[in-house]
Amino acid sequence: MDIGYTVEQLRAAVADAVRAPSLHNTQPWRFRLCDGGIDLAVDPTRRLPATDPTGWGARLSCGAALHNLRLALAVAGAPATVRLRPYPGEPDVAARLVPDLPRRATPTERSLHAAVPRRFSNRAPFWPDPVPADVRWRLGEAARVEQCWLELVIGASAVSAFAEIAGSAHRVLERDPAYRAERTAWTRIGPATDGVPAAAGGPRAEPQDLLPSRGFGALDRAPGRDFEPEPLVAVLISAGNTATDQLVAGQALQRVLLTATDAGLGASLLSQPIEVPGARERLRRSLGRFGTPQMVLRIGYGQPGRPTPRRPLDEVLDLPVTRP
């Protein structure tokens, strides 16, 4: 039996892990081979002090990267056992993966893994076609499998109430000069390996828009291409809000996003009502749910697009190490 993962297995799995989403596409993760296991850590140098002062977003992103790691290793026939936050003295290490008993990947694992390179944040308007009930069930089941739940905001009045919460949070954030400067610093005009390309940032916001947009985009929308009047909004909720809960939520988020991609859907993330504590609490109360909202998604059928750039693997990998 193999005693651990190899550098080749690490590189192959990390190539998929880095396809996870992150706030402003900061890619706040590092990976290392340690005593035959793979350690995934939050990279504190890529945190967003104004947008993500608590590190919630970075941990959510690392949870999403962890889900991709799990899928990649499973499809390669080398599934992992995962320990979250394994080293009390190293709080930035989010997870440790060690080899489990070899087995064949399940059909679901293969389908989700195939969706990894096709997933991207679609910030453009979606088509008016409704998401079928069976697909909505699949999205909810994806969250449940990862120990979270997905609350769908259904109906014009419920969506309008959510839009008021999201818009209020957006206005609070926009009043902060540091927040605006941070967004500008991570908006990319030319070629880049991180940040959000302006061309992928969605169209410029207009007064008739129901939901707020982050403001990365610099493109005028085509005539008649307003955002959908009643979008499918989904709120991802975890049982608690500890660092471990956030890592669990990140894995659930990625499974939901990959399930949506596999079903031919697009999705974009609306984190403004999560970033403002008062708005997050209002959102929780409006849903009447136990737990903590961790992310909001806008889901629908949209135009094809392409994923945003990713940094070279050598920039996120550390040499194999041995713990004392």
Rank of each mutant, 00 (worst) to 15 (best):
R180A: 09
R180K: 04
E182T: 12
E182M: 06
R183L: 09
T184M: 05
T184C: 03
A185S: 06
A185H: 09
W186I: 01
W186P: 00
W186H: 07
W186E: 00
R188M: 11
R188I: 12
I189Q: 12
G190T: 14
P191A: 12
P191Y: 05
P191M: 07
A192K: 12
T193L: 09
D194N: 13
G195L: 15
V196I: 15
V196Q: 03
P197T: 15
P197K: 15
A198V: 11
A198T: 13
A199H: 08
G201D: 01
G201K: 10
G201T: 02
G201I: 00
G201M: 06
G202K: 04
G202V: 03
G202C: 07
P203Q: 03
P203K: 02
R204E: 03
R204D: 02
R204N: 08
E206C: 07
E206W: 01
P207E: 12
P207R: 13
P207G: 14
Q208T: 07
Q208N: 03
Q208A: 14
Q208E: 13
D209T: 10
L210V: 04
L211G: 01
L211W: 00
P212F: 10
P212I: 11
P212G: 10
P212Q: 08
S213K: 07
S213Q: 08
S213I: 06
S213G: 14
R214N: 01
R214G: 00
R214W: 00
R214Y: 00
G215P: 07
F216V: 01
F216N: 00
A218D: 10
A218M: 10
D220K: 15
D220E: 12
R221F: 02
R221M: 06
R221Y: 01
A222E: 15
A222H: 06
A222C: 05
P223R: 14
P223S: 09
G224L: 09
R225P: 01
R225A: 13
R225K: 12
R225I: 09
D226L: 09
D226V: 11
D226M: 05
D226C: 08
F227A: 14
F227V: 13
F227D: 13
F227L: 09
E228G: 06
E228V: 14
E228M: 07
P229K: 09
P229G: 06
E230R: 15
E230N: 10
P231N: 14
P231W: 06
L232N: 09
V233H: 03
A234L: 10
A234F: 08
A234G: 13
V235F: 01
L236P: 03
L236W: 02
L236I: 13
L236H: 04
I237C: 08
I237P: 00
I237T: 11
S238G: 11
S238T: 05
A239N: 03
A239R: 15
